[in-house]
Nucleic acid binder design. Structure first.
Lengths: 146, 146
DNA sequence: CCGTTATTGACAGGACCCTGTCAATCTGTG
DNA sequence: CACAGATTGACAGGGTCCTGTCAATAACGG
């Protein structure tokens, strides 16, 4: 029924692989974060907060998420005692977020686990392949954005 | 703080591009489906149901989703009048799902739009690049699965 | 036939992400 | 200063996905 060109067919196959790998990455991220009492999303937020006192809106912009999404994640991190708020002298509305010792410890643990995981997997691929694929995907992303 | 090898660094870059492209694909899928009154997830379910009468559990296995997820999507498709149920002679529990004329029309519209979108984008890439990237990502997926 | 095991729909509950809206606050301009 | 426009946190509501649980039903082995 649907008329794909040859290249369209090949393109669809590539998109399928991307979706598949992305799914595997989400699982891997969750597995890396779990032993630290985190989830993938909470880990990402924690990592941004670690780079300095920021507001929720800034975190949202950094991660490319909606403000509300970050707000929810920050709420759960706060109730876990991993993030705390403090007065922002530059904006009465937007309190600054900072890591608690517990939050910092959890983040460090995940980061160590991630480095080990990444290096181990990367050792089983060739630099050439990695660079080639990255380049093609970058072009693809630009194509999709334009 | 975190110790990445050279290859680990390159590997991380590739993963970042994959996540980025995946995000763009989700947006594109939603945009393709919207004019037909669909979402990305509903489109996927509709496409599986189109291939023949199936049960919700079968759709879940086909798409690699949890039964409950498909159940919810089917419920919204049913309330939209795009999917209907019918008695399954082979299993008293599991009713078969079938497309209504409205569901079929919506699916056909999205499929036409998707083919046009795919072919247009694919025309701006080379077959070699597409095949190279697909191959590398397939290896990567296998690596992540094992 | 009968008991064990697997599958199914269904419900509860939660994580993650979005849009739309609103009032409070900030910022830039006249 | 005063006003217009942008930004922010907060709330409401919805979509998509998950795990865990349960009873009903199916499938299978003895």
């Amino acid at each position: 029924m649907v008329a794909f060109t040859d290249r369209g067919q090949e393109f669809s196959g590539l998109l399928g692989e991307i979706v598949r790998v992305n799914g595997l990455l989400l699982s891997a991220g969750a597995a890396l974060a779990r032993p630290a009492g985190l989830t993938g999303a909470r880990w990402q937020v924690l990592a941004v907060v670690d780079h300095g006192p920021v507001t929720a809106a800034q975190v949202a912009r950094t991660l490319g998420l909606a403000r509300q999404t970050v707000r929810e994640t920050v709420a759960s991190l706060t109730s876990l005692g991993m993030v705390s708020h403090r007065h922002n002298p530059r904006d009465r509305r937007a309190r600054q977020l900072v890591l608690t010792p517990r939050g910092r410890a959890a983040l460090r643990l995940v980061e160590r686990r991630q480095a080990a995981w990444t290096n181990q997997l990367a050792a089983r691929a060739t630099l050439t392949d990695l660079r080639t694929a990255t380049g093609i995907l970058r072009d693809l992303a630009d194509l999709l954005e334009g």
